[in-house]
């Protein structure tokens, strides 16, 4: 006999999560970013969907608030695509939580996501997902520094060769 891990998909829990997300509006409003109740609900659903997709479970406060508050001051997010970007970022977060074999804490992962999103990716979610975070996850799995980039090494090598010539 096995006791299957059962998640309570309770309406009350969802409602509470939505209200917590909406509370973030008080802070993000300073950056002209606001989520409607409908968008907050969608975010909560995205989280549940992503967790199920990547085979994870979450207890207590989710990471939606952390993502919202960390990315609020990004120069590449405007109200126009705000909800869409946060949705994608939440999905990306859970995916790379698995890809980094849980070796990275939530705060560190969100920190790196923000750093690359605002930095080399210049607000491109595709570059963030398919290039920077993939490379970072690979580095973490190989026990290297998350920021290590062999591309820079080869560029440096090419520069050195140019100088030699």
């Amino acid at each position: 006999m096995s006791f299957e891990l059962k998640l309570f998909d309770s309406y009350l829990i969802e409602k509470q999560a939505v209200s917590e997300v909406l509370l973030c509006n008080n802070i993000t409003a300073d950056y002209a970013l606001v989520l409607s109740e409908e968008q907050a609900l969608e975010l909560v659903e995205t989280r549940s969907h992503s967790l199920k997709n990547v085979g994870r479970v979450e207890f207590g406060g989710g990471i939606i608030e952390k993502v919202i508050l960390t990315f609020a001051d990004s120069p590449y997010i405007s109200q126009y695509r705000y909800a869409e970007i946060i949705n994608e970022l939440v999905e990306v977060f859970y995916y790379f939580k698995n890809e980094t074999l849980d070796l990275m804490s939530d705060d560190d992962l969100i920190g790196y996501m923000k750093k690359y999103f605002d930095g080399v990716c210049q607000g491109s979610l595709d570059q963030l997902k398919y290039r920077e975070l993939e490379r970072m996850a690979k580095n973490v799995r190989l026990g290297l520094d998350p920021d290590y980039n062999d591309l820079y090494d080869s560029e440096k090598l090419m520069n050195d060769e140019d100088e030699d010539e």
Partner: peptide, 11 residues
């Protein structure tokens, strides 16, 4: 350090 874990670990 992490709010979520993999299902098999939770199980």
């Amino acid at each position: 350090q992490s709010s979520s874990i993999r299902v098999e670990i939770a199980q």
